[in-house]
């Protein structure tokens, strides 16, 4: 091997080692840093939306699985085993309040920044959310189309997302002062909860 080739190889190796060393020197993450997320109305979610989403999406062969980014706990599917000494059994006890909270958190955590933007514009153009783009098949969804824009489940979810949680200037609206779902939206949620 010629001296020039040896030098070239040495140069490449040296550059790679240097880049690795630089990457190792990157600053450590700031554990005190917080990202504030503007979340949709939790009480409405629990009262009207969770039942539909757990029913439609939370079966054990779909989102009722620990490996899912949008992971759902419910009576009919996967159970939250860190409560009640792990005694909850799939298909047995009713869905628990802790499970509903975990479902809400999973939903919001899918795209926290996008959810904040959606809440900031008071629910306008909700199909920006991955959470809706997938079941509508705007984006690839392994489970196929799970919602349509004219079905009661979609309308229930959108009505919930369009409850204003901040004012136009960004001032938070306290939960007690927030709007409620309309009669029509409540009917859609009830119909959707009986899926299929």
């Amino acid at each position: 091997m010629s001296a020039i080739r040896v030098a070239a190889v040495m140069g490449v190796v040296g550059t790679a080692v240097g880049l690795l060393a630089l990457a190792a020197c990157a600053s450590s993450p700031d554990e005190n840093r917080l990202t504030v997320v503007i979340t949709p109305d939790f009480d409405t979610y629990v009262a009207s939306v969770d039942a539909y989403l757990t029913r439609r999406c939370g079966s054990l062969d779909c989102h009722g699985q620990p490996g899912r980014a949008y992971r759902i706990y419910s009576r009919e599917g996967y159970r939250l085993y860190t409560i009640q000494d792990g005694s909850l059994v799939s298909g047995q006890q009713p869905t628990q309040a802790e499970e509903q909270r975990a479902n809400f958190q999973a939903l919001v955590s899918l795209e926290p920044e996008e959810m904040s933007r959606l809440m900031g514009r008071q629910g306008e153009n909700p199909n920006q959310l991955l959470f809706l783009r997938k079941p509508l098949k705007i984006e690839r969804h392994k489970g196929g189309p799970a919602m349509a824009e004219d079905d009661p489940g979609y309308r229930c979810v959108v009505a919930w997302l369009q409850i204003p949680v901040v004012q136009g200037d960004g001032t938070p609206i306290p939960p007690a002062q927030r709007a409620k779902l309309s009669t029509n939206a409540l009917r859609n949620c009830a119909t959707a909860s009986d899926f299929p």
Binding site: S59, L60, D61, R75, E76, G77, R79, S90, G91, K142
Partner: peptide
């Protein structure tokens, strides 16, 4: 069934033999 089958072709993937716990109705 109290819920539906979303897409799984094998019953036993969810209905695990002799097991009832947080992840399977048995």
């Amino acid at each position: 069934m109290s819920s539906h089958i979303g897409r799984e072709a094998s019953c036993a993937t969810c209905h695990i033999l002799g097991l009832r716990d947080f992840g399977s109705p048995g």
